[in-house]
Amino acid sequence: MNLPNLLTMVRLALIPVYLVVFFSDQPMRMYWALGIILLAGLTDVVDGYLARRNQQITQLGIMLDPLADKLMMIAVFLSLLISGKISFWAAVAIFFRDMTMILCSVIFHFRGKKTVPANMLGKLTTVLFYIALLLLMISSPGDSMWEIAQVFLWSVIALSYLTSIVYMFQLKMVNERFM
Results as ranks from 00 to 15, higher is better:
G48M: 00
P141Q: 03
V76F: 02
K70V: 01
A132L: 13
Q170M: 14
Y49K: 15
T163C: 11
M99Y: 14
V106S: 05
R29E: 04
V92D: 00
K70R: 07
G35V: 14
L121E: 09
M101N: 08
G61W: 08
T43K: 14
M179N: 03
G61N: 11
M9P: 01
P66G: 01
V166S: 09
P66D: 00
L19H: 07
K123H: 10
A90T: 06
V166A: 07
V10Y: 10
Y130S: 10
S79W: 00
Q150K: 12
M120W: 05
G41E: 09
P66V: 02
M28H: 15
K172G: 09
V174R: 08
K113R: 06
L38I: 15
A91S: 13
L153I: 05
V106T: 02
V76N: 02
S24W: 07
A51K: 07
G112V: 10
L60Q: 00
I37M: 09
P27T: 10
P16E: 08
L6D: 05
L6Y: 09
L6N: 07
L134C: 09
S83Q: 03
L60W: 01
F152H: 05
V92A: 03
F88I: 04
L34P: 11
A40S: 15
L134T: 11
M179I: 03
S160M: 12
P4I: 00
L134Y: 06
D143A: 05
L162M: 09
L39V: 12
P141T: 05
G122V: 09
M28D: 15
L128Q: 09
E147C: 13
L162W: 10
M137V: 15
I82K: 02
V10K: 02
L14H: 05
A93Q: 03
F22W: 10
F95H: 12
K172I: 11
L34S: 14
R111A: 02
I82N: 02
F108I: 00
F108A: 00
F129S: 02
T100A: 12
L128R: 11
